[in-house]
Design a protein around this nucleic acid. Structure first.
Lengths: 159, 159
DNA sequence: CAAATCTCAGCGGCACTGAAATTT
DNA sequence: CAAATTTCAGTGACGCTGAGATTT
């Protein structure tokens, strides 16, 4: 048995300080997550942010851009751009709120719902690839632990 | 008991699809990690990449830039820039390898070792903040699970 | 007036690509 | 010639800031 983990080139393993640092483990795992999910979405002409926005609109109904941003953890200014793209693709409709004319009301379209179904299936498959080495129990543990950290941090600073 | 997790604005929780997606949990947790560690390092005039490179040089001795990049998971071209910065600050020395003149030999300096000690202390404190809501056992579980995912992914595609 | 919303222009950190030059 | 290393120029996704215009 070796001190080096499987998968690493045995002569060029990462320094112990990184290997045992939760922040490094989280960041590098997030990098693989980006790659795997990003490629899977790109293969169907989608982007990572689509799924959160559309799922939000389905679960909570029509929303303002600001509310969508708070739910999904996107900056207000980025949401404007994202909605441009989703509206251009016909996945959402943007109308002005007559009862509060500062706001846009964003609604998902039928095409958007269909798109979301593909996104969900694609995301599920990509995520299975991501956490492939973990058992079902371990996947649940990981989600639980990350959720605890996230809840705590969100309580200190909003997403 | 409510269905909404603590910390979230009760009326603007994230959609269930995100909340239960491992990729989203990882990405958002990584975002907080970036912020917390980044700010802690900025407060002492340091950057996140310093710690990995310097720790690598201490643990494994003088290395080429390519080797440093493979150990820490940095792109070859980014390493060149990073070493520029560390050399400028006097934390490393860059000399040409006489036995293989393609390579640079990067060595940590005494100032670099002192810098690393500060970095390590700062990182430890920042990481405690990051995983504050978890018990010691849970922190170990989280590191173990992330490490398993990382090892698996590194085996498929290098860092 | 204070606060919220939308929009735009721009910035910075970061991962990455492609290509050139050198050396093995 | 093939492969490895360094370097540079540039790209793109992403998180974020600041400011302006509008409305509540």
């Amino acid at each position: 048995m070796s001190a080096v983990e499987p998968g690493w080139p045995s002569n060029e393993a990462p320094p112990t300080l990184l290997r045992t640092a939760p922040s490094w483990l989280i960041n590098k795992t997030a990098l693989y997550s980006h790659r795997i999910i990003g490629e899977a979405f790109a293969a169907i002409g989608a982007r990572r942010f689509h799924v959160g926005l559309l799922a939000s609109l389905v679960e909570f109904g029509p929303s303002s851009q600001a509310s969508l941003g708070r739910r999904c953890g996107f900056d207000r200014s980025d949401v404007a751009e994202m909605i441009n793209e989703l509206a251009e693709a016909g996945h959402v409709e943007r109308t002005q709120d007559p009862s509060d004319r500062r706001r846009n009301i964003i609604q998902i379209t039928d095409a958007g719902r269909i798109h979301l179904e593909r996104l969900t299936a694609t995301l599920d498959a990509a995520q299975q690839e991501l956490v492939a080495p973990l058992s079902a129990d371990e996947r649940a543990d990981l989600a639980r632990l990350l959720g605890r950290v996230l809840d705590y941090q969100v309580g200190r600073h909003p997403l």
